[in-house]
Simulated scan of single mutants.
Amino acid sequence: MLISKPRRRIAAALASAVLGLALLTGCGDDVSCGLDQCTVTIARETNASVDVLGVEAKFVSADENTVTLDVAGEQIQLTKGQQAIEAGGLTFSLSSVTPDEIQVEVSR
């Protein structure tokens, strides 16, 4: 059975939409996602955490340039302006540190 061109286009558009939604799964209020990257904002307080792309990231400590996070049970240290670090199947890099919160870029 042949599928007409309009039906193929609709099927392709639907498949693209489903894939896009799958990539955004796990993004909450403190997470802003695009197709291949999320920006995560975490409060600088004890027990603050966020779920991003199915992985939990917990705030551990921070100073003005370095942040320590617990990602999927592994502690990582991010330094502003330094190379990204892989943990929990994702790549993390530090965007900013303020007295109230940290902002981290996360990608697959």
Rank of each mutant, 00 (worst) to 15 (best):
T46L: 07
Q77I: 02
G34I: 04
T91Q: 13
I10H: 10
L53C: 01
E64C: 02
V31Y: 01
Q75K: 14
V67N: 05
S4E: 07
V40W: 09
R9Q: 15
R108M: 11
A43G: 11
V52C: 05
V40C: 08
A11S: 11
F92S: 02
V60M: 08
Q75F: 07
C27W: 07
L35T: 06
I3E: 11
L23S: 00
G34W: 12
A62P: 06
C38Y: 08
G28V: 09
V97L: 12
L23H: 08
E74N: 12
L94V: 09
A13N: 07
V31M: 01
Q82D: 07
Q82S: 08
E74F: 05
A22T: 12
S93D: 05
Q83T: 00
T79E: 14
E74K: 13
I85F: 15
C33G: 02
A22L: 11
L24R: 07
E45K: 05
S107I: 06
C27K: 00
D30M: 04
S96N: 15
T91D: 15
I76D: 05
N47I: 02
A48K: 04
L53E: 12
A84T: 11
A87W: 04
S95C: 01
G28P: 03
L19M: 11
L69N: 13
A12C: 00
G28F: 03
A15K: 10
L69Q: 07
I3P: 00
L23C: 10
T91F: 08
A13S: 13
A11V: 00
V18A: 10
I76G: 04
L2K: 13
K58W: 02
A57M: 07
S32M: 08
T68Q: 14
A84N: 05
V40A: 05
N47F: 07
G20M: 12
L94N: 06
